[in-house]
């Protein structure tokens, strides 16, 4: 769950994420990004939504991307990946990227259940916890408004 109103655009999530996955503090290799509007003092943290019906998974012809039935996690099996990169173009949210240095595609893997972005966010703008009724209510409300605005923008 994200709370953009709490995000201060500090990059802590990006740094924690890239360090966790690559051992380097490099936001370009982060699986999460904060989109910023500095003049307005607004920023929004964004990462993989672990879609119900993931586009990245649908276009992967070798079954390298799978969704765990129990946890809902959408993960990449790097060994199986043949590097066609269709998934990076297919994700409508831009949450799966290609790393030319390592020649791999990468996305959020929820750090095996302990997301470092959540751990290091100083303002609790990102949360990772069991869905409660109240949380689901909020999610539905936000999604409805999101869909409405998206229609307008397109």
């Amino acid at each position: 769950m994200i709370y953009p109103e709490k995000c201060i655009g500090c990059s802590s999530c990006e740094l924690a994420c890239s360090f966790q996955h690559t051992g380097e503090f490099r936001p370009t290799k982060s699986r999460i990004s904060a989109i910023r509007w500095p003049k307005m003092g607004v920023s929004v943290p964004l990462t993989c939504l672990q879609c119900e019906d993931p586009s990245c998974m649908k276009v992967c012809m070798v079954g390298a991307i799978t969704k765990d039935k129990e946890t809902g996690l959408v993960s990449i099996n790097q060994e199986k990946c043949i590097g066609c990169r269709l998934c990076t173009a297919a994700c409508p949210f831009g949450n799966i990227n290609y790393d030319p240095e390592e020649a791999i595609v990468f996305k959020c893997d929820l750090c095996d259940g302990e997301p470092q972005c959540v751990e290091f966010c100083p303002n609790n703008a990102i949360e990772y916890r069991e869905a409660t009724d109240a949380l689901l209510q909020r999610k539905k409300k936000v999604s409805a408004k999101f869909a409405e605005i998206l229609e307008e923008v397109r």
């Binding site: 953009p4 989109i35 929004v44 964004l46 831009g94 799966i96 936000v142 605005i149």
Partner: peptide, 23 residues
């Protein structure tokens, strides 16, 4: 037309919509 933005800009587009949703 949905395929003509790079992943980073797709993300920004989503961010923009979210910004409008929240702010």
């Amino acid at each position: 037309k949905d395929l003509k933005t790079c992943p980073e800009c797709s993300k920004k587009r989503v961010g923009t919509v979210l910004k409008k949703t929240f702010f």
